[in-house]
Structure formats: C-alpha cells, structure tokens
C-alpha cells in the first residue's frame, strides 16, 4: 500500500473572544485524527478552547511576488485614515 498521511493546517482559538490563529501543521489520516493529534501537539498546556483543521491542499495562498499589484494600491489612499482630515484642536470627541 504505502500511502502517506496528508498534511493539515491547525488553527486554535486560545480563549473565547479571540479569533482562531494558525498554530502550525501536522500529518493525519483524516480530519478526526487531525483534531486529536492537534490536541496533543498544540494544546498540551491549555493553549486552546477550540481547534479547526483544514487539509493544507485546500488553502490557496497569494504569491509574494505579486505583493506589489495586490497591496501597493492601498498605500496612496491616505484619505482612509482619520489623520488625513484637518480639524481645529478645540473640536473634542472626534
């Protein structure tokens, strides 16, 4: 046979009120085993209250070589930030 266990990406919510954050990855035969392994590998000291597992092949990532086209257009839109607008100092609560 010789079929290798696929790779899974592990996301953990460290406590309620916080988002799930990427913790790392591991190999497992299926989603259920990925959850069990993630419990042992990433939460041995109560680091989490919830775990998501996603098979790595399902993640589509942006290419850092295209960072220019993707992210630079935001750089000259300074009018999206509150400090762009001139207000007299005596205006309060704004």
């Amino acid at each position: 046979m010789n079929k290798n266990w696929p790779l899974w990406e592990i996301f953990v919510r460290s406590k309620n009120g916080l988002e799930h954050r990427h913790f790392g990855s591991l190999h497992a035969a299926d989603a259920e085993m990925a959850l069990e392994n993630a419990r042992d590998v990433y939460t041995r000291r109560s680091e989490g209250v919830s775990i998501w597992v996603v098979e790595s092949k399902h993640i589509t990532a942006s290419n850092p070589e295209h960072n220019g086209e993707l992210f630079e257009p935001a750089q000259d839109k300074i009018y999206r930030h509150p400090t762009f607008y001139d207000l007299p100092d005596d205006v309060k609560h704004m």
Binding site: N2, K3, A29, D30
Partner: peptide
C-alpha cells in the same frame, strides 16, 4: 498501523 488508518479514512470518505 499507518496503512490501516489510511485505509479506514478512505473507506469513510
């Protein structure tokens, strides 16, 4: 053990 886990996962799928 690794092969059996994989076979089980495929069967479930």
């Amino acid at each position: 053990v690794r092969d059996a886990a994989m076979a089980y996962a495929e069967k479930q799928q």
